[in-house]
């Protein structure tokens, strides 16, 4: 009855495939629609925040920081309200992380200021003396990639109907307009709150360093 399976590589491969695909078909696919619904009032990331998310990915904060508050009292006491599925509806990719060498960041915007972040990224020991986190001074020099972030906003608006306004359009001119009218003022606000003269001067010249974008992103996490 089963002997053919052991001799025929093709049928064998089909058998293996059915068995391993089974879990995915039943488990993952049907729940997609439910889990993707945003909670009420959830706003998509601004382009500056998206650029900050790219910095977060690039310097791989996810290696040590989670963005998922589990429903335990010890966690809600420490980090705030536990995480809901709908809060992640615009997170592509998800950045939950798998290891907490440092604390969770899902609601870090509630209890840290741009000023604190700036000091922390420049020299973590200046705000947390026992910190083992490395300093990320290069974020104060490298420029954030707003254009790629803008391209991402255009893409998710088009492909996934993420609710962005008319200011997100697939053209270079639209990006430049957005950069001047929306992104720069937003960055300036952050830069002023950071109390770092060099950064402020850069933004006033129309350049946005990575740190400003990153802090904009961290401020969004609430």
């Amino acid at each position: 009855m089963f002997h053919w399976l052991e001799k025929n590589p093709f049928l064998f491969a089909v058998g293996v495939f059915v068995v391993i695909a089974f879990a995915g078909l039943v488990e993952i696919l049907p729940s997609f629609t439910n889990a993707a619904r945003p909670i009420k009032g959830l706003k998509p990331y601004t382009v500056l925040e998206l650029a900050g998310k790219e910095v977060y990915k690039k310097d791989n904060c996810i290696a040590c920081h989670s963005q998922l508050i589990r429903p335990f009292k010890a966690e809600t006491d420490r980090y705030g309200k536990y995480s809901l599925s709908g809060e992640y509806a615009y997170d592509r990719p998800f950045l939950w992380g798998s290891k907490r060498t440092g604390p969770d960041l899902h609601r870090v915007g509630n209890y840290r200021t741009p000023d604190w972040h700036a000091n922390h990224m420049w020299d973590p020991k200046s705000v947390v003396p026992a910190s083992i986190m490395p300093a990320y001074k290069h974020q104060f020099k490298n420029l954030a990639d707003l254009e790629t972030a803008y391209a991402e906003a255009v893409t998710v608006k088009k492909v996934f109907n993420t609710p962005y306004g008319d200011d997100i359009q697939p053209s270079k001119a639209a990006f430049e307009k957005y950069y001047k009218e929306k992104a720069l003022p937003e960055a300036l606000k952050i830069a002023k709150a950071m109390k770092n003269k060099d950064v402020l001067a850069m933004v006033q010249q129309g350049k946005i360093p990575e740190i400003v974008a990153l802090i904009a992103y961290l401020e969004h996490l609430k």
């Binding site: 089963f2 068995v19 049907p30 729940s31």
Partner: peptide, 21 residues
């Protein structure tokens, strides 16, 4: 969700029967 539940249950039973067979 219900369909998912039934599909899962019967397919699992089927695969278990095949494995024991």
């Amino acid at each position: 969700t219900e369909m998912q539940g039934y599909a899962f249950f019967f397919l699992t039973v089927l695969l278990v029967v095949i494995l024991y067979g």
